[in-house]
Design a protein around this nucleic acid. Structure first.
Length: 424
RNA sequence: GGAAAGAUGGCAGAGCGGUCGAAUGCGGCGGUCUUGAAAACCGUUGACCUUCACGGGUCCGGGGGUUCGAAUCCCUCUCUUUCCGCCA
């Protein structure tokens, strides 16, 4: 959530930024928050004064008892009765105001960076770069789901049988390709200074709240209500939550992590050609990079992360474009997001394979992830993350773009991990 | 699934119901000594709310209760550890 202090001290800027996200009734919501905070402070002042008086009386009573002045002590005791009633009344008021304030704060999305493009839908995203050559396939080129069947790489029917739609089974060279990609991605990140983490695939509620999946996107996660756990939708959740309630040393910045995990998403309401083949799954593999950084350096770091992701796609030889997401398409928690999309030559469409975001202090505020700055003050760190990369659509594009009449050529960078250079 | 124990500051670990925000040790920071460092010694060192400041308030896992007064007593929830059972 946004910092109350920021909202109070930069009201107009805050409203302007939130307007980029088309937040309804922003002015009103912000002013309500500011008013509630003022209420809270005035109630607290009164409560503090009463408590101070009670503390004094209690101290005096203690002294009198020690000195053996019983009657005086007994007389003083009665003084607190009225104060107690006042205190109870105030603490009820306080609880109400705080709860209302908290509800309003937590339901407010992150404020986009001022440079985030205006716009409402994915069509309004700004293309900021296009790389690689789009292959010219013949008209008999096959979409990846046909290639998967032809070369027996991914068995969707088997997944239906074992679990359900959206849980494919990778077989033979298909399975090997998965493993090769994971290793390639993990090693590349390690070479770039990211420390590898192998996180749990289920998280508790506090972790879901920390990174912002809860309460905003509850329906997106698989839940295990019996134990109060959620299947992770991305490794971002467990890895970032390593730093929940942590005060890091400023000299540790940047903290860079990479982790591979299976990701589980309910994807309720998706259907049609969007979900055909590997395009959208309930379970998929992804390598994720997570960075904790000083607020002054986070946008610099975002660029570095983009370069890393772009470098992977370059090595894989996939044509791609980078989009700067517009206010309407950016996520609830993000301040700035870049999407990477690869060209899927047989489907003739762009597929999102990475989303790189700076959350500024939004997640850190929920998680109480702080550091002591050089001025000696406690401040919230910035959190960032990005896919590097999500596998299924990479596989889809690799299969489609590299198909030839006598097989599918594998990119050079994967061969050490694959043990073969062609699927045929 | 059964049984027991525990949850205190960055960590470890004390704490008769009344100067306990909390002993002590480690760590951190500053200093003395040293060419420099280590060791030793001295000092310092929690977070949060509020205030221009002085100050005031809150926090010893969460919530509730007893009391003039709770880290300390009672109830409850959550979590952790250990033992037994089962098991990759």
């Amino acid at each position: 959530m946004l910092q109350l202090q920021y909202i109070k001290e930069h009201r107009d800027e805050c409203i302007e930024r939130l307007k980029i996200k088309h937040v309804a009734d922003v002015e009103q919501r912000i002013d309500e928050i500011i008013a509630l905070d003022e209420q809270r402070r005035s109630i607290q002042k009164k409560a503090d004064d009463i408590k101070a008086e009670q503390n004094n009386i209690a101290k005096e009573v203690g002294m009198l008892f020690k000195q053996g002045k019983r009657e005086e002590a007994e007389a003083k005791k009665n003084l607190t009765a009225e104060l107690k009633a006042d205190e109870k009344r105030l603490s009820e008021q306080m609880a109400n105001v705080e709860q209302e304030l908290n509800t309003k704060l937590i339901s407010l999305p992150n404020a986009p960076h001022i440079t985030v493009p205006q716009g409402r839908t994915a069509d309004d995203n700004l293309e900021v770069g296009r790389f690689g050559e789009m292959p010219n396939l013949g008209i008999d080129a096959l979409p990846h789901w046909d290639l998967c069947a032809k070369y027996n790489l991914v068995d969707f029917e088997l997944g239906n049988k074992i679990t359900g739609a959206g849980f494919p089974v990778y077989k033979g060279k298909g399975a090997r390709l998965q493993r090769a990609l994971i290793n390639f991605f993990l090693n590349s990140a390690a070479d770039a200074g990211y420390v590898e983490i192998q996180p749990p695939l289920m998280v508790n509620e506090a972790s879901g709240l920390g990174t912002g999946q809860l309460p905003d996107k509850e329906g997106q996660m698989y839940a295990i209500p019996l134990d109060g756990f959620y299947m992770i939708p991305t490794a971002e959740v467990p890895i970032t939550n390593i730093y929940r309630n942590v005060i890091v040393n400023a000299d540790q910045f940047p903290i860079k992590h990479v982790g591979y995990s299976e990701c589980f998403r309910r994807e309720a309401g998706s259907y049609g050609k969007d979900v055909r083949g590997l395009n959208r799954l309930h379970e998929f593999s992804k390598v994720e990079i997570v960075v904790i950084e000083h607020p002054d350096k986070s946008y610099e770091r975002l660029e570095e992360m983009k370069k890393h992701v772009g470098g992977l796609l370059d090595q894989l030889g996939l044509p791609y474009r980078i989009l700067k997401l517009c206010g309407g398409d950016i996520s609830f928690t993000s301040a700035m997001t870049f999407d990477f999309e690869v060209w899927s030559a047989a489907q003739q469409r762009w597929l999102e394979v990475s989303s790189v975001s700076n959350f500024e202090a939004f997640q850190a505020n929920r998680m109480k992830l702080r550091f002591k700055d050089s001025d000696g003050k406690m401040k919230l760190a910035h959190t960032l993350n990005g896919s590097a990369l999500a596998l299924p659509r990479i596989v889809a594009a690799l299969l489609e773009n590299n198909q030839t009449p006598d097989g599918i050529t594998m990119p050079e960078c994967l061969r050490p991990y694959l043990g073969f250079d062609k699927i045929s």
